[in-house]
Amino acid sequence: MTTILVTGGTGTLGRQVADRLRAGGQDVRVLSRRSRPYAVDLRDGRGLDAAVEGVDAIVHCASTPRGGDDTAAGHLIEAAHRAGVPHLVYVSIVGVDQLPLGYYRIKRRVERMMEQSEVGWTILRTTQFHDLVLRILAAAARMPVMPLPSGVRMQPVGSGEVADRLAGLALSRPAGRVPDMGGPEIRAFHELARAYLRATGKKRPLMPIRLAGKAYAGYRNGDHLNPERAVGKATFEEFLAERFSRPE
């Protein structure tokens, strides 16, 4: 039996990674700030040595746009090196080396930290999850008119499909930077918004907004997309149909 530590193991992605590994018969340790017995705040690293001791691989899903991912990754890499962990798997984002966003810059910094470490590593970049697009649209739909960035397209991918890929990578040898994983379709943001309104039965007029700045220009340019790696299966409409058909 292989022992695998999943950071952020109670989050959208990490929970699914842990479930898939358990279903495959692996011994899974879930690390999050409140999940005992491995309740660890990666930003200070206290208790991390006990969490990584004896594990065969780490899948690093913990992340926050509020900052500190590089500090957290530094503690994790150092603890993995001290414990002799042979493999660290990291999930990153398509476009982190192109889009001038603070969160993306930190994600790219974490990639470089992995690449320069003495721990065997695998990095998978993905496009945005269906779940994230849904959260953005649901927030916009709280207003009488839905404001949407004009000229922006998205390539959402199923978080469950990404979890499948990460679980497989964790059970393999370190592979370096593996091919990106993108959703099956590249869709204009207003098309995704209309799909959301149909699925929820809401009625909102859409208001396209042209934003300024280099980051928005990068989104209009498609720096966050990878059409050559449209390997995901589930479309956004299929994701919505499953999500909103569930009983309350």
Rank of each mutant, 00 (worst) to 15 (best):
D223R: 13
R246D: 00
A138C: 02
L206H: 12
G54E: 08
G158H: 13
M113T: 00
G9E: 08
S35I: 12
A62Y: 08
R43I: 03
L206K: 10
E248C: 11
P86I: 14
R142H: 09
S150Q: 07
Y103Q: 06
E118Q: 15
V17N: 13
L124Y: 03
E78Q: 14
R194V: 00
P147E: 09
S63R: 11
V59I: 13
V89F: 07
V30L: 13
G45Y: 09
G14D: 05
S150F: 00
R29Q: 02
R43D: 03
Y196H: 14
Q116C: 00
E161H: 07
M181R: 13
P86V: 12
G74T: 09
V91S: 11
I106F: 03
I77E: 06
P37S: 10
Y38L: 11
D70M: 15
D70W: 14
W121K: 10
I93A: 11
M1C: 06
T235N: 04
A18N: 01
L124C: 02
L99A: 13
L5T: 01
G232F: 04
L124G: 01
G25E: 08
D27C: 12
P37N: 09
D27A: 15
L225W: 03
V152F: 03
V119R: 13
T122F: 05
S32M: 08
R187K: 15
R210I: 11
A170N: 11
L5K: 05
V231N: 10
A39K: 05
L171E: 14
V162L: 14
R125D: 01
G182W: 15
S172I: 03
H130I: 04
L124K: 06
A217K: 12
P247H: 14
P205H: 08
H87L: 01
A141Y: 10
V89S: 09
G176F: 10
Y216N: 02
T12Q: 13
L42F: 06
R66H: 04
V110L: 12
V6D: 04
T3H: 05
R36D: 08
L42P: 01
P65I: 12
L192S: 02
M113F: 01
V40N: 05
Y104C: 04
R20M: 11
A80Q: 10
V231D: 13
V89A: 09
P156M: 07
L5S: 01
L171M: 15
R108T: 00
L42N: 07
G222S: 06
V59L: 11
I93D: 07
V152C: 02
E78G: 05
D19K: 15
A188S: 06
R243F: 03
